[in-house]
Design a protein around this nucleic acid. Structure first.
Lengths: 204, 204
DNA sequence: GCCGCTATATAAACTGTTATATATTGGTGT
DNA sequence: ACACCAATATATAACAGTTTATATAGCGGC
């Protein structure tokens, strides 16, 4: 489980409660990893039992106490050990590829439609990375001296996410071109490609 | 779960036992999906209960009977329905990115070493795709008339897997260049690249 | 005779997602 | 003023999905 190690990485930054950890996830790592609170809480507990983090409880009236977790020296050591590990790289594991792989079993038109939608989704996510996420990192670096060094690494991971999206989009385009040659009358699946008949903008 | 649908896709090809399904997985879809036998058997059972596949038992002496599963019309319909679905595209979910993201917390040299190893692993997998997998598809298309159409789609998925690997490799190279500027004395991490290093562009 | 392969599975453990529960603060609507 | 909902903050339960380990049983090779 790398969630353990992702949490050690986050807590290496500063001590946090489970809730804060989740927010950190959502605002920063979300483009290549994510976790739900229901997974974060027990994992923090496990990390504490293993001695990698220390809990200190902040008493609060009228609401549950804040349990703030802080990384220990053992935790830092474990994180560094894990970074040096070399497991086989993560594969793709993409259900969409399953659809394409068995493409002979569905009408070509259907495949062209889902290919186009898939491409559009990736384009949206790419645009989000290019604007919102990029800006978030730049602002963080400009305003907080302490983040200047971190920002370099954050940008690198964002670069990878964007490369992945661009490769995916290019592949969708190429695949659509390829498949359109197999079905000459595929106009329904490419609205806008041939600007003359808007009647068939089958977006339903 | 897309395993269900991957199995429907496979059985759409021809009837198979669980064991054969696993072999199909290993020899064809493995570059973007995989499943263990312990997952395949109960999933086939579930598919049968749902009426998407039909089981017929081949009796065998001295060993467990072969249970051959065949897709039904309902199964084919379900597969086509699933293909038309448009779920949000799969994200990266790559533990290696976690290592880079928290790069400030480990020595730069360590990061350069794992980056290089990661790149090499991807290069190996890319080479495997370029040679073995590509050839396997080409041969299948040449020898079996029935696979000519399938081969087109199989090639497309292989193209995507290769694009992904190439993007990853390029990103590793770029990242290493970037990080080497931050640590002038990183010769240990790039065996063979040295030979010429003028005064250092030390950024410390 | 042990090892690995074919062929079938089950059990246990681990990882991850969705739904639900509690209790307070603060804002929007009416 | 009061009703309602979202957000903050903490979790647990139930379910879904995946991996690893184990069990059985014959057959073929070293």
């Amino acid at each position: 489980m790398s969630l353990k190690h992702a949490l050690l990485g986050i807590l290496g930054h500063r001590p946090m409660s489970g809730y804060e950890v989740k927010q950190f996830f959502d605002s920063s790592v979300q483009h290549f990893w994510n976790a739900e609170l229901s997974q974060i809480y027990p994992t923090l507990k496990g990390l504490e039992e293993a001695g990698f983090v220390a809990k200190h409880v902040e008493f609060q009236e009228n609401r549950p106490n804040r349990k703030v977790y802080e990384i220990t020296d053992a935790g830092r050591a474990e994180f560094r050990r894990w970074v040096r590990e070399t497991p086989p790289p993560a594969g793709l594991r993409d259900p969409f590829m399953v659809k394409v792989f068995f493409g002979t079993q569905v009408p070509l038109e259907d495949l062209l439609i889902v290919l186009r939608r898939q491409m559009e989704e990736h384009q949206k996510l790419l645009a989000f990375s290019e604007t919102v996420l990029r800006a978030r990192i730049r602002e963080g670096m400009e305003h907080h001296e302490a983040l200047r060094r971190d920002g370099v690494f954050w940008s690198l991971t964002l670069d990878m996410a964007m490369s992945y999206r661009r490769a995916y989009i290019a592949w969708c385009e190429e695949s659509m071109r390829m498949l359109e040659q197999m079905v000459p009358d595929a106009a329904a699946a490419r609205p806008g490609t041939d600007a003359d008949h808007p009647a068939s903008a089958a977006t339903a």
